[in-house]
């Protein structure tokens, strides 16, 4: 069975989320949303069955907040969000992320992105932040970001129970070593190589002793992704599902 790029990413995210009790997914994040749904699907199938709470912004039924959008941030501060996703127009080797813009002088950047959203808060407070950016090029993976929306972990006295556990892209999965403040290449997606990752990454990183190929979803996982999970995420991301899973749309 052929596994698409999106299916591999959804499956990889679900594996990273499996230990969680509560997962939140922010704006414009269909693949993380689908990954969180697959993790919930697996948790429900455990014996005894286990609940995984989801807070998917932009969804009505995959979201139990009753105090408004502010509740997500309060939940995170209370320690009730185990995992969240952040991306960036630029990401650097110390896990600083830039969601604001590049080129020229802020705020008159030549390229302006939407803005920092909740990153400058959630990055500090959520224990398992997964950096997720599909495009893996030197344009995105830079030596140093032009604007720090949210800073990577650093040795300062700032209250920081949270931070990144790693970075998932179209090419690979890096873990993040908080003590050394460096990414470590752990797995490379099937069809890609360590050299390709190196060629397309603008920052230095470490390479694990035994880099493995990223695990592929089995038939049961693929069936779940293409069926119930695609249908559930369509409420919040109809255009994504229409493009990637037309049979479920």
């Amino acid at each position: 069975m052929t596994v698409s790029r999106q299916e591999l990413l959804i499956h990889t995210i679900a594996r990273l989320l499996l230990p969680c009790r509560s997962v939140a997914v922010g704006a414009s994040s269909p693949i993380p949303g689908a990954g969180a749904l697959l993790a919930r699907h697996w948790a429900a199938a455990e014996t005894p069955s286990r609940r995984l709470f989801l807070t998917i912004l932009g969804s009505r039924h995959l979201n139990s907040m009753t105090s408004g959008g502010v509740e997500l941030f309060d939940m995170a501060a209370q320690g009730r969000v185990d995992a969240f996703f952040l991306g960036g127009g630029q990401i650097d080797g110390e896990a600083n992320i830039n969601l604001v813009g590049t080129g020229g002088h802020y705020p008159q950047n030549t390229v302006r992105w939407p803005g920092s959203f909740g990153s400058a808060y959630l990055y500090f407070l959520v224990p398992r932040v997964i950096l997720f950016r599909e495009e893996h090029t030197r344009r995105v993976m830079v030596p140093k970001v032009d604007f720090i929306s949210a800073p990577g972990p650093r040795p300062d006295p700032v209250y920081r129970p949270g931070g990144p556990i790693g970075l998932l892209t179209n090419l690979c999965w890096f873990s993040f070593d908080k003590a050394r403040r460096r990414f470590v290449l752990e797995t490379v997606h099937p069809g890609h190589t360590v050299e390709e990752v190196r060629d397309n990454t603008g920052f230095d990183f470490d390479v694990a002793d035994a880099v493995q190929p990223t695990a592929l979803p089995d038939a049961a996982a693929l069936e779940a992704i293409r069926g119930p999970i695609a249908r559930e995420i369509a409420e919040a991301y109809p255009r994504f599902v229409a493009q990637v899973f037309p049979d479920a749309a």
């Binding site: 501060a77 604001v100 802020y106 920092s116 400058a120 808060y121 959630l122 990055y123 500090f124 407070l125 604007f147 720090i148 929306s149 949210a150 800073p151 650093r154 300062d156 700032v158 209250y159």
Partner: peptide
């Protein structure tokens, strides 16, 4: 909480 270290 948060924010410290951000260019914001």
């Amino acid at each position: 909480r948060g924010i410290i270290g951000s260019d914001l």
